[in-house]
Simulated scan of single mutants.
Amino acid sequence: MKIGLYFGTFNPIHIGHLIIANHMAEYSDLDQIWFVVTPQSPFKVKASMLDNHHRFEMVYRATADYHKLRPNDIEFGLPQPNYTIDTLTYLQEKHPKYEFALIMGEDNLKSFHKWKNYELILQNHNIYVYPRLSDGVIETQFDKHPKIHHVDAPIMELSSTFIRNSVKKGKNVRPMLPEQAWEYLDEMNFYR
């Protein structure tokens, strides 16, 4: 089984995240997409960052109706700070029959050469890239790399930061979130 790992803080998860993940599940050769909720770094405590279990709960609720999309809290139990290579190594050991791939925005690909052990990631894993409007250029080594697949997914310009700021200003953000995530966010009075 081919699993696409979609890493993020998901603070909060929004429809852009779901659209990209579903597109990857439906229009690539990936069988499932796991939303890997990145824990809050104990070294960078941010007031706007919800606790790990609240962000995981929103992802859990948002993906409940999609059989190809799954929430994952694997990084909550791994040493901090989390490096993608370590998470990939751990998952591969835990699930040797699965093939794990990374899902990332084009903006992250532009700085991929700065990631810890990026060569090892590329040696052992495919990367599925979705388009983003961003500055900078993609390193030529990644331009036509056989393990890097550019997926013609919709460009989503919605961000969790925008949603948090809008909630703080009393704006209605309900259409921007999956219904179940919105209900939890509203019920818990988050970001106000």
Rank of each mutant, 00 (worst) to 15 (best):
K144I: 08
K171V: 01
H54K: 14
Q141T: 11
R70L: 15
M24T: 02
A153P: 04
P79Y: 01
P178C: 09
R61D: 00
K46D: 09
K169W: 07
K116S: 06
E93F: 03
H150V: 04
T87Q: 10
T63K: 03
P178N: 05
L30R: 01
V173K: 05
L91V: 07
P131A: 12
I85N: 02
F162L: 13
P131D: 08
S166M: 12
D186K: 15
V129S: 08
P42I: 00
R55A: 09
K110W: 11
N126F: 07
L158F: 09
T38C: 15
M1G: 13
N117L: 11
Y184G: 08
D186T: 03
V45M: 02
M24V: 05
I85P: 07
H150G: 03
G105K: 10
F162V: 05
P81Q: 13
R70H: 15
D51P: 12
T9H: 05
A25C: 00
L109S: 06
K116P: 01
L88Y: 11
T38L: 10
E93G: 03
H95A: 08
S111F: 04
D31N: 14
I13H: 07
I19V: 14
V37S: 02
D73S: 13
K147N: 15
K144F: 12
Y6E: 04
Q180H: 12
A21C: 07
F43L: 15
G16Y: 04
D51W: 02
K110S: 05
E75Y: 13
P146Q: 12
E157G: 14
Q32F: 12
V129W: 15
L122E: 13
P12C: 03
F112V: 11
I85E: 02
Y6I: 12
E106W: 02
R132P: 12
V129C: 14
L177C: 02
N11S: 13
Y83M: 10
I163L: 00
R164T: 01
F7C: 08
F7H: 08
A64L: 10
G8K: 09
L122D: 09
R132E: 11
L18T: 03
V36P: 00
T89L: 04
H95W: 13
V173C: 15
L30I: 09
N126G: 12
L120N: 12
S41H: 05
H67I: 00
G4L: 01
M24A: 06
D65M: 11
P79E: 06
H54D: 13
F190Q: 07
K97Y: 04
M104V: 06
I13K: 10
S111V: 15
A101G: 05
A101R: 08
F190E: 07
E157A: 11
I155L: 13
I74W: 07
P79G: 08
P146R: 07
I3V: 14
R70D: 05
H54N: 12
K144M: 13
M156L: 06
S134R: 09
K44Q: 09
K68A: 15
W182Q: 09
L5V: 09
F112W: 14
K168Q: 13
L5T: 01
A25M: 00
E183R: 14
M49Y: 10
I13E: 02
I33K: 05
K168P: 01
H113K: 06
A21F: 01
P79L: 01
G8R: 04
D152T: 10
